[in-house]
Simulated scan of single mutants.
Amino acid sequence: MLEQLFNSIFLAKDVKVHPLMLIFSLGVSLLLGLLLAKVYKYKTIYTKEFVITLSLLPTIISLIIFLVNGNLGTSVAVAGTFSLIRFRSAAGGAKELLAIFIATAIGIATGMGYVSLAVFFTLLLSLALFIFENSSFSQVSQTRRYLTIKLPADFDYELLFEALFSRCCKQQELASIKSIEGNRSLQLEYVVELQPSLSDQDFLKEFLLYEKVKEVSLSKIAKKKKTL
C-alpha cells in the first residue's frame, strides 16, 4: 500500500494522458488547496486575497507542471515567469511563506500525477500545523519583551540600567546599540525577561522616572531581521 504513494496516474511520457486523469488531478489539487487554506486560517490573521490565492495556487502549479512535462523551452519560460512574479512581490511572513511552499509542493506532486502522495503530504502537514498551533512548543513567552530606549549620547546609562534590570527582570540582553539624530542620541534595544509579578506599565514607569530618557517602547513581537 505504501508503494502506491509513489505511483503516478500519468503512467509514462509517451502515453497519451486521458483528459479525465488531468481533470481528476486538477480537482484533487483544488480540494487540497482549499484544505490548506482552511488550516492556514486557523489562529491566523489573514487577508481575503491571500486565502483565495492559497486555494488556487496548487491547481495552477499542477497545470503548469503538466504542460511543461520535460519540455526544456517551456521550463525556461516558466522559470522566467516565476522569477518576475517573485521580483514584483513583497515578502510575507514566515507562516505565509510556509503555506506557499506547501501549496507549491502539492501542485508539483499532482501535476506529475502523484495524487496519493499529495493527499498524504497535505494531511500530514495539516495535522502537524494543527498540533504546533495548540502545543506549548511554539507558544510565545508571556514574560519576554523587546525593549527600545532612546536617550542622549552623553548619558551614563550602564550603572543606572543595571540596577533597574536587576530589580525588574529575571534576565536581560543588549541586542543592539545605534547612534541616531546626528550622533546626539543613542537607541538601545534589549531582550528582557520580566519578573512575573511586574506589569508592562509598571516596567515602563521605571524608565519614565528619568528625564534623560527621551522615549521607551515595549513589545512582545520579535523584530524581523533583514538577513538570515
Results as ranks from 00 to 15, higher is better:
F132V: 12
N183L: 13
C168A: 15
E211V: 09
K38W: 08
A94W: 00
L36F: 06
E181W: 06
I85E: 00
E3I: 04
G70H: 12
F82P: 08
A37R: 08
G182Y: 05
G27E: 06
V76N: 08
Y46C: 04
L36I: 03
F82D: 07
L30K: 07
L30P: 04
L22T: 08
K205C: 03
F6M: 12
Q201K: 14
Y190S: 04
T47D: 09
L188R: 05
T122A: 04
G182C: 03
A91L: 13
V140I: 14
L125P: 05
F121T: 12
S75Y: 03
A77E: 01
G27H: 06
I60S: 09
N71W: 04
R184S: 11
L11V: 15
K41P: 02
I180A: 07
G33A: 06
F207G: 01
F207C: 04
G73I: 13
A91T: 13
L32G: 02
N183T: 12
L208K: 12
F165S: 09
A79S: 15
S136K: 15
V140C: 08
S141W: 09
A94S: 11
I102G: 09
L228E: 03
I131R: 10
K43A: 08
I64S: 06
Y42F: 05
R144Q: 12
Y114L: 13
M112N: 13
K95E: 03
K205D: 15
L147M: 06
T44P: 04
L117E: 02
K212C: 04
S55L: 00
F203E: 06
L218R: 00
K214A: 01
V28Q: 03
M21H: 14
F82H: 06
I177V: 13
S126N: 11
Q187W: 11
R184T: 11
L97K: 11
L20F: 11
T59P: 10
L56I: 13
L194A: 01
G92N: 12
F50M: 03
K38P: 04
A153E: 05
L151R: 04
A79N: 05
D200M: 00
L72V: 13
E193N: 08
I45W: 07
A175M: 09
S176E: 08
Q201I: 14
S29V: 08
V39A: 02
S141V: 05
I102S: 09
G73D: 12
N183D: 14
K13N: 14
K225Y: 11
G182W: 08
F121C: 01
Y40E: 00
S199K: 08
L228K: 10
S29R: 10
Q4R: 03
S75G: 15
A77L: 13
T143A: 02
K214D: 10
F130W: 13
E96S: 11
G33C: 02
N71I: 05
V119E: 04
K38T: 02
E3K: 12
E133K: 15
S55W: 07
S217T: 15
V51C: 03
L2G: 15
S116V: 09
S83T: 14
V213M: 05
G33F: 03
S75Q: 02
